[in-house]
Amino acid sequence: MSINRVIISGNLTRDPELRSTAGGMPVLGFGVAVNDRRKNQQTGEWEDYPNFIDCTMFGARAEALSRYLNKGTKVSIEGKLRWSQWEREGQKRSKIEVIVDELEFMSSRGDSSSYGGGMGGGYSAPAPAAPAYAPAPAPVVDASSSVYDEDIPF
């Protein structure tokens, strides 16, 4: 068994690029900068060393997010690593990228430097308008029917 999951948090290094496959599926490409913190052996000071990670997202969510992402946006992404290889002008090239499954905004709109609490909701754009109908009332729990600790499977 093998596991291929990655979670990173950083800032977009460029505006995302929205393309489409030959079959019409939206493909969003963007880069994320993630810093490693290391101690400089000569000065004794801690320094940030950036890693630049290519990210790709597919489908309708990619198309929707392309309107809200831009260079500098702080995001947290979860996905899997994919290695690809190709040949260009007689030279073999390869890269590792993250195929994005989940994306969460970590800074509010217009604030690309904030480390504040995230704008929850994963792929969220603006929240949908409240429905025009009233939600169903919560079910009433009968106090005489209780759950015992031994009934809980964990």
Rank of each mutant, 00 (worst) to 15 (best):
M1Y: 05
S2T: 10
S2K: 14
I3G: 10
I3D: 15
N4Q: 08
R5G: 01
R5I: 04
R5E: 10
V6Q: 06
V6E: 04
I7T: 14
G10T: 00
L12S: 01
T13R: 12
T13N: 09
T13C: 05
D15F: 00
P16F: 08
L18Q: 04
L18P: 00
R19M: 00
M25D: 12
M25V: 14
P26M: 05
L28F: 05
F30S: 03
V32N: 11
A33G: 02
A33C: 13
N35H: 07
D36I: 07
D36S: 13
R38T: 00
K39V: 11
N40T: 03
Q41W: 09
Q42R: 15
T43A: 09
E45V: 00
E45T: 04
W46K: 03
D48W: 09
Y49V: 14
Y49W: 11
Y49S: 12
Y49H: 14
P50S: 06
N51D: 11
D54F: 06
D54N: 14
C55T: 01
T56R: 14
T56M: 14
M57W: 06
F58D: 05
G59E: 05
G59S: 09
A60H: 11
A60E: 14
R61I: 05
S66T: 03
Y68E: 13
Y68P: 03
L69T: 05
L69K: 11
G72A: 04
K74R: 15
G79K: 03
L81S: 10
L81M: 15
W83Q: 13
W83S: 14
W83E: 08
W83L: 12
S84C: 00
Q85N: 07
W86A: 00
W86G: 01
W86Y: 02
R88P: 00
R88G: 02
G90E: 03
G90M: 04
G90I: 03
R93H: 12
R93F: 05
S94I: 01
K95Y: 03
V98S: 10
V100M: 05
L103F: 05
L103C: 12
E104C: 09
E104V: 08
F105H: 07
M106G: 00
S107K: 06
S108G: 13
R109C: 06
G110R: 07
S114G: 08
Y115E: 07
G116W: 01
G117S: 15
M119W: 10
M119L: 14
G120S: 11
G120T: 02
G120C: 01
G121Q: 01
G122R: 14
Y123T: 13
S124C: 09
A125M: 15
A125R: 15
P126F: 15
A127I: 05
P128E: 08
A129W: 09
A129Q: 15
A130R: 13
A130V: 07
A134S: 14
A134F: 10
A138G: 02
P139R: 10
P139L: 08
P139C: 07
V140R: 15
D142M: 06
D142G: 04
D142V: 04
A143C: 01
A143F: 05
S144P: 03
S144M: 07
S145M: 12
S146G: 12
S146E: 07
I152M: 13
